[in-house]
Amino acid sequence: MNVWIMSLFLSGGLCAAQAGAAAPSGQPFVPAEDVVQRLNQRYMLVDNSCREQGTNFARGHYYCSGLIMRGTDDGYFLPWEHSPNSIARGSVSFFWIRQDLAVPVFDGAEVPTRSGFVLWAPQDEIDLGREPILDQGVICIFPFDAVTYSVWKNRGCGYKRGPTLTYPQPEALHRNMWYAWGQCEGMGIKTADQWMALWNNDLGDPQLPDQRAQCSWNADSQSGWDNMISIRKRLSGPNMYGWNEVMVDTRDDSGAMLMPHIAAFWYVQVSWEDPMQSLSAARIYQAKLLSQGYYAPILRLDFSAPSSQRFSYRAEDQGSIPLGN
């Protein structure tokens, strides 16, 4: 048995990673301070005209601006693994945050879970000399949680209340052209006003009155992203319905392909829950990733902090993790 131990020395605020230790997998190492800086910069950057590196084709806002995140819980699985439901549907649910995106005003409703992971934005991975995981595979976006675990049409991106329409997508030659797809345009819905009309006319499921049907926007439609941001601003306030939803293709993978592209694990603390609960989960995620030969720091995600400090690193949050295989 080969045993590898990565010690994080909490007493002096120093960890092996901060001191410049090589990344376990051999991927280009990014110190924790640099991770925080890059994530906060990407979160703060408002760019609605992203261009694909190498081709200059238009891409969705996620390509160069804001951050793609996933919420998860601890369990007898790896946090980045696709669930059986996701594999059968062909897609996984993520969400996107950026400093100008309206979020609920009540404690803990900004994100779907209390902990999870954030992926590197394509532009950051390119800058770091890596192959960007989100260069391909992002399918569609919904302004709010679309409860896609119950939607099987077109990999979770189909309209829940009616048939899935097949129609030509906006002409594109970018590298994600075989994945990006949305239903709104095919329903004649091209503006935020038209989307709002659909939302307001849908009475919802009597069992789930807050979960109205939504049509999705093509993930590489810049106007679709603009509409999503506009819609959330219109419906902001105490009754705002949670986070947005971004569907990403599983690409016939268990989720293992995500491991080298996890920038950090995040956790949030809420006033009505044990403050250690979410941090403990993040520490377990970190240990599980480390057991696979990869490392990512744990960061606190705080929506009450100044926008430029949305993520923060604390040495005492990191774990001391003996691992073996």
Score class of each variant (00 low, 15 high):
residue 26 G to D: 08
residue 27 Q to N: 09
residue 28 P to H: 09
residue 29 F to Q: 14
residue 29 F to Y: 06
residue 31 P to C: 04
residue 31 P to W: 09
residue 31 P to D: 03
residue 33 E to Y: 02
residue 33 E to T: 01
residue 34 D to I: 00
residue 34 D to S: 03
residue 35 V to A: 06
residue 35 V to Q: 09
residue 36 V to H: 06
residue 36 V to N: 03
residue 36 V to C: 06
residue 36 V to I: 03
residue 38 R to K: 10
residue 38 R to P: 03
residue 39 L to I: 06
residue 40 N to P: 04
residue 40 N to S: 05
residue 41 Q to E: 13
residue 43 Y to F: 15
residue 43 Y to Q: 01
residue 44 M to V: 07
residue 45 L to V: 13
residue 47 D to Q: 07
residue 50 C to Q: 10
residue 50 C to Y: 07
residue 51 R to W: 05
residue 51 R to D: 13
residue 52 E to W: 02
residue 53 Q to H: 15
residue 55 T to K: 06
residue 56 N to R: 15
residue 56 N to F: 13
residue 57 F to H: 13
residue 58 A to F: 10
residue 58 A to L: 13
residue 60 G to L: 04
residue 60 G to D: 13
residue 61 H to E: 12
residue 62 Y to M: 09
residue 63 Y to A: 01
residue 64 C to E: 05
residue 64 C to M: 01
residue 64 C to W: 03
residue 65 S to W: 01
residue 66 G to R: 06
residue 68 I to R: 02
residue 70 R to A: 11
residue 71 G to Q: 00
residue 71 G to M: 02
residue 72 T to S: 10
residue 73 D to W: 07
residue 73 D to S: 11
residue 74 D to T: 14
residue 74 D to P: 12
residue 76 Y to R: 12
residue 78 L to F: 11
residue 79 P to F: 01
residue 79 P to L: 05
residue 80 W to T: 03
residue 82 H to T: 06
residue 83 S to F: 11
residue 85 N to C: 05
residue 86 S to A: 12
residue 87 I to C: 08
residue 89 R to I: 15
residue 89 R to P: 12
residue 90 G to L: 08
